[in-house]
Simulated assay, not measured.
Amino acid sequence: MTTPSYEGVLFEVPTPVEQLLHLAGECTRHNDAIDVHLSTGAGAGSVAHAASARTLAHDTHAALRAIRDQRLNNSMELAHTQIRLRQLGFLSAVSADYNPAAARELTALATDTVMDSASAVALQMLRRDPTGHRAPAARLTPIQHSALEQIARGHVVANSSLGREYTRSHEPKISMSTLRSLEAENLAERAPATACPPYHGGPLQDRVRLTPAGIATLATVLARPAPQQNTGPSAAAVPLPAAAPATAKSR
């Protein structure tokens, strides 16, 4: 994968999909901050949480306005998407008046709600004008495509133990080598010690986030099918090594 240039992309007016991807990252940061506070007693307290919740509400309504400005076909799917976002805006605003533990429940599904909305809006925009949609800013492998979506959904963290780095993610697993390839392309980055420990009393984990370039790239491919893995006749002819007796963590 060659390193793309983002000079022009990053200074263009963000699309509604890019706004939603940015909002999804805000939701993850908001929930992570509460989780860290509740699990360790460190980090922001109720005052900071309330300010963050109000920002989420404001930015959710801004994303809704951006969607309406697109004048997309008024499909049932788009109508439901806007309803879910309005509900999220309301829940985020209300959560500012609750203590962190109760407020965390109100925004528990925020990131996935925003990501589902981003996918729906991206699909509607692509249907309306397949040729006018921005071309992908980078050529992604199937694994990288999947990894960017998982990162955007707040499903990927990184950590180290005994001098070795590893990742934790949902299925399909995102390996450390995949994360490093995205970091090398400036599509992803780690925010040190911002995610909840993997076990009680354990160290804080590094949340993996999309960079602005990562948001721009994912926005262009979100509604498109993931690229197919290139397999040739020779691939099946190579014998697989015998299975190792023990398994190892993803690296």
Rank of each mutant, 00 (worst) to 15 (best):
L72D: 06
A62W: 05
N74H: 13
V36R: 01
S75A: 09
A51Y: 12
G41R: 06
A57V: 04
H30K: 05
A50H: 03
D69C: 03
N74R: 14
V47Y: 15
H49E: 14
T60W: 01
N73K: 14
D69Q: 10
T60D: 08
R29Y: 01
N31Q: 07
S75Q: 06
Q70P: 03
A44N: 06
T60K: 03
G41K: 09
L38A: 11
H37G: 07
D35S: 10
S75Y: 07
L72W: 12
G25C: 03
H22A: 10
T28P: 01
A24P: 01
A48G: 08
H37F: 08
L20A: 02
N73S: 15
Q70L: 10
D59A: 05
L64D: 01
A48C: 05
A66N: 07
Q70E: 10
H30L: 05
Q70M: 06
Q70D: 04
R29Q: 03
S39N: 11
A63E: 00
A42F: 13
L23C: 06
R68F: 13
G43L: 15
H30G: 01
A57Q: 09
N31F: 11
D32M: 02
L38N: 06
R54E: 11
R71Q: 10
A24L: 07
H61V: 14
A24C: 00
H22W: 10
E26A: 11
H37T: 06
A66E: 07
A44F: 00
I34F: 00
A50T: 02
A66F: 03
A33S: 14
A63C: 12
T40W: 11
A53N: 08
T28A: 10
A24G: 05
R71A: 13
N74W: 01
H22L: 12
T40L: 14
D69I: 05
H61K: 11
N31V: 07
I34L: 01
A51E: 08
A57I: 03
C27M: 00
R65W: 07
G41M: 14
A44M: 11
R68Q: 12
N73Q: 13
H30D: 03
R54C: 15
A57Y: 09
A48N: 12
H22E: 11
S46W: 14
A51N: 12
V36S: 08
R65K: 09
R65G: 09
L64G: 02
A33L: 13
G45S: 08
R68S: 12
H58D: 11
E26M: 13
S46E: 12
A66R: 07
L56Q: 04
V47H: 15
L38D: 04
S46R: 11
C27E: 00
L23T: 00
S75L: 09
R29T: 00
A50S: 10
V36C: 05
H61R: 12
R65P: 01
S46Y: 09
H61N: 10
A33G: 04
G43H: 03
T28H: 05
L38M: 09
A62L: 09
N73Y: 12
T55Q: 15
T55F: 08
H30N: 04
